[in-house]
Design a binder for these strands. Sequence first.
DNA 1: AATAAAGATTGACGCAACGTCAAGGTCAAG
DNA 2: CTTGACCTTGACGTTGCGTCAATCTTTATT
Lengths: 252, 252
Amino acid sequence: MEYTVKQLADLSGVSARTLRYYDQIDLLKPSYMTDKRYRIYKEEQVDRLQQILFFRSLDFSLTKIKQVMDSKNYSELEALEQQQKLLLIQKNHLDSLLTNIQKTIEHYKGEKIMTDSEKFAAFKENAIKDNEKKYGDEIRKNYGVETVYQANKKYRNLTKEQFTKMNNIEKQLIDDLNILSENPELDSELSQKIYLEHKEWLEYSWPNYSKKAHRELVQMYVNDGRFAKYYDDKAGKPVTELLKKVVEHFTE
Amino acid sequence: MEYTVKQLADLSGVSARTLRYYDQIDLLKPSYMTDKRYRIYKEEQVDRLQQILFFRSLDFSLTKIKQVMDSKNYSELEALEQQQKLLLIQKNHLDSLLTNIQKTIEHYKGEKIMTDSEKFAAFKENAIKDNEKKYGDEIRKNYGVETVYQANKKYRNLTKEQFTKMNNIEKQLIDDLNILSENPELDSELSQKIYLEHKEWLEYSWPNYSKKAHRELVQMYVNDGRFAKYYDDKAGKPVTELLKKVVEHFTE
DNA sequence: AATAAAGATTGACGCAACGTCAAGGTCAAG
DNA sequence: CTTGACCTTGACGTTGCGTCAATCTTTATT
């Protein structure tokens, strides 16, 4: 059985353009070309396309699909699990967005509306002060914290003092991580200090601390690039992985 | 208070490029331009930017943000509820993907899993062979592999064949690096071979290969003594720096 | 057989939201 | 007067195609 582009398109539900594109990126090549350069597909290609569409339906990138399908020894299972991780991260992200948007909507409806400028007012105060002192870095830090502040509703009940204290602990944490990274010894006092600092920091926003949750959290840090980036940027070098190791060391 | 592009960028945490882009699409115009066409922002724009970033954090498109903010009679509440619906749809979609992928994974697992201990055994088999052939320092080499093996959970779902293949690729890579280091010519076939080997090796554990990430990784190798030591020990001489140069050469 | 309709081909631009150079002006500091 | 930091405007790259446009080839109808 042979198929032209349109026939295969109709058969599979994708567009002809898609098939030409897949040919172009070497994801799905026709069985052969006629002398007039028409693409002809056969059963083998139909099968392959089905596979492709299966992975695509799971939101695999075309690049990844190619890797998985073209490499004999690439484990499909592993690819699936990687993809699952990615999707879980996306889901977490979506969930937090939904929480935020729900809160915002409630605010509006409750007519206890904080104007947006009010929401940012406290932060701006800091920004302006800092700016006048020309400590550019500090501004960025505060802004970073502000982002977290928005994302995490739990911060909302902190007093100003607590908030400041959290910031200081975090700062110290980053510094210590920086130092430790030069001589990464998990069994050191510095290492333990880091663990305790991170724990203390967490306890400002966690209802009840558990080692298990702590371990899972740092695992998330590493898996989710946004967390890693947050810490790595602050430290000026990659320290997230180190933090993870430290925490895992003391939570066993 | 007046801000240049950089200052506002630092203050807000977005890039200068983003500000220029927002100007370009008329989302955030500067307060005025100097005679030299420098953008100058004032408080009003800072406020507006904060509004923008707030909506952006909820995954509003920039187009939508513009609509909401520029239209006097466009209800923010309505927009929020609309966005909430969109996010819920996405969430449902994600949930169904996750269900599907979970099912598929279970299906796979029902059939062919290599347990960690089995993999470890396979690895040791090789190690012993090598040990018989080569001698003491081979043992150290294999301990190195063991460390990496433990450190990277991603390896855990590789099949026996894949695991072996990865090891072989890495071995070949080291050998090639050794050869190249005697006559370091970045524009050679050997050099390219090394690049491709390292890439292939990475793709066993990376969800998405990109040249950018590849460059960053080898930069890491050099910066982080632990990585460098790993390769240098295996090669018997310092080759990490060379690997970095090779990769950078082919990822430009 | 002539003609029209259907389907095929290869470009090439467009989209979203910027990242990342490149080439070249401007400004404050030393 | 020279750095060096910061500013400007292009313009290409990214992902997965949709959507013309211009130009054959094949098939169907008259």
